[in-house]
């Protein structure tokens, strides 16, 4: 029995950092409720992460193995996750609001006859009820949500919850599962993964973003900055840059793109439309480089450089390299 259960997402044979974020938060909630914390992992790769999950407070790691669970599939994963939830009856289930979580959580919730409080940034308890805070309108406002059904399901925005070590046993319990193949689903034909190891915008700790002021598709200055920052940094773009065809749509930050919360957001040649500001306004630190001193982005920036980005960014990169080489 686990009072709180998290779903541990595995990607490319490794467990994601978001699993430890969820475990840390799940541990905190389980302690308050006076119960155990469980984690569900899928596939034969799952068991090896039990010790890692234990370090972040997981008592029991439920490993579900089946041929259908080796590659992510919404229907089979939702079947398996729903099965563990029905068997173990957690009061609270936490999933990451990652690309996979967005696909998995609602299907699982619908199987259980509940809804997920999606994309939460903080959790508290009101008695035994989960109260989750989440942005709406891409961060133009926030609201607290409570789940009226059982279990109380929520998904957490990646990169927001704190990772805390609380060593627990991480005992493995295998869950027997055979997929219900009578339910129609898709088959994966091809996975075309960016092998550069580029982190997704929503999970990046540092985002270097370019807008209309980039003047064209050459983002090498920003790519260079991101690579100096290291593997937790990535390049984003404004809608103007995406609509101009300079960057792919998956790079877009804003209300019709991705809402992001990195530690550092560097906005280069982005004026700061209301939609863009909504999408990145909760970044911890914002740097803006723009030649227009009136650009709205400066009203949100912690550090604003008024100047030509093509002159400023090369100098910035040089300084950064020198500093990070120390």
């Amino acid at each position: 029995m686990s009072k709180v259960m998290i779903y541990g997402e595995i990607k490319g044979g490794r467990i994601k950092k978001t699993a430890f974020e969820l475990a840390s938060e799940g541990r905190r909630l389980a302690d308050k409720l006076g119960g155990d914390l469980g984690a569900v992992v899928m596939g034969s790769a799952g068991e090896q992460f039990a010790a890692d999950l234990g370090r972040y407070g997981v008592d029991t790691v439920y490993v579900v193995e089946a041929p259908e669970l080796e590659t992510y599939n919404s229907e089979y994963f939702a079947q398996a996750l729903a099965k563990v939830i029905i068997e173990k009856k957690p009061e609270i289930v936490l999933i990451s609001h990652s690309m996979q979580g967005k696909d998995l959580a609602p299907r699982t919730a619908a199987k259980l006859g509940v809804a997920t409080i999606a994309d939460c940034i903080s959790f508290e308890l009101d008695g035994s009820s989960l109260v989750a805070k989440r942005p709406m309108y891409a961060g133009k406002c926030y609201a607290q949500w409570v789940a009226l059904g059982s279990p109380q399901m929520a998904s957490a925005r990646p990169n927001v919850l704190e990772v805390v070590e609380t060593p627990k046993s991480g005992t493995v319990e295998k869950i027997a599962f055979s997929a219900d193949a009578s339910r129609a689903t898709y088959t994966t034909k091809d996975l075309n993964l960016d092998t550069s190891g580029k982190v997704d915008l929503t999970e990046a700790e540092i985002i270097v973003s370019g807008g209309r002021g980039m003047g064209g598709p050459d983002y090498s200055l920003l790519e260079e900055m991101a690579s100096v920052f290291g593997p937790t940094a990535t390049v984003g773009a404004s809608r103007a840059a995406v609509d101009a065809g300079w960057r792919t749509h998956s790079d877009q930050v804003g209300q019709t793109g991705k809402t992001v919360t990195p530690n550092l957001y560097v906005a280069c040649g982005i004026s700061g439309s209301i939609q863009h500001l909504a999408g990145m306004g909760s970044s911890k630190v914002i740097v803006a480089v723009n030649k227009d001193p009136e650009a709205p982005i400066f009203t949100k920036a912690d550090y604003g450089i008024v100047g030509d980005l093509f002159k400023v960014i090369p100098e910035f990169n040089k300084e950064l390299k020198a500093l990070l080489a120390e």
């Binding site: 006859g113 509940v114 809804a115 409080i117 942005p135 709406m136 961060g139 133009k140 406002c141 926030y142 609201a143 607290q144 949500w145 409570v146 789940a147 009226l148 059904g149 306004g281 909760s282 914002i286 001193p293 400066f298 009203t299 949100k300 920036a301 912690d302 550090y303 604003g304 450089i305 008024v306 100047g307 030509d308 002159k311 400023v312 960014i313 090369p314 100098e315 910035f316 040089k318 300084e319």
Partner: peptide
């Protein structure tokens, strides 16, 4: 209903921070 919202709030107002204007690019960057 399965979910219920309460306590809508506005995001914390962000204040404009430091500004680096009329400076040499290298000095501002540094």
């Amino acid at each position: 209903p399965k979910l219920q919202a309460r306590n809508f709030t506005m995001p914390a107002e962000r204040q404009a921070g430091k500004r680096y204007q009329d400076m040499e690019p290298a000095d501002a960057a540094k």
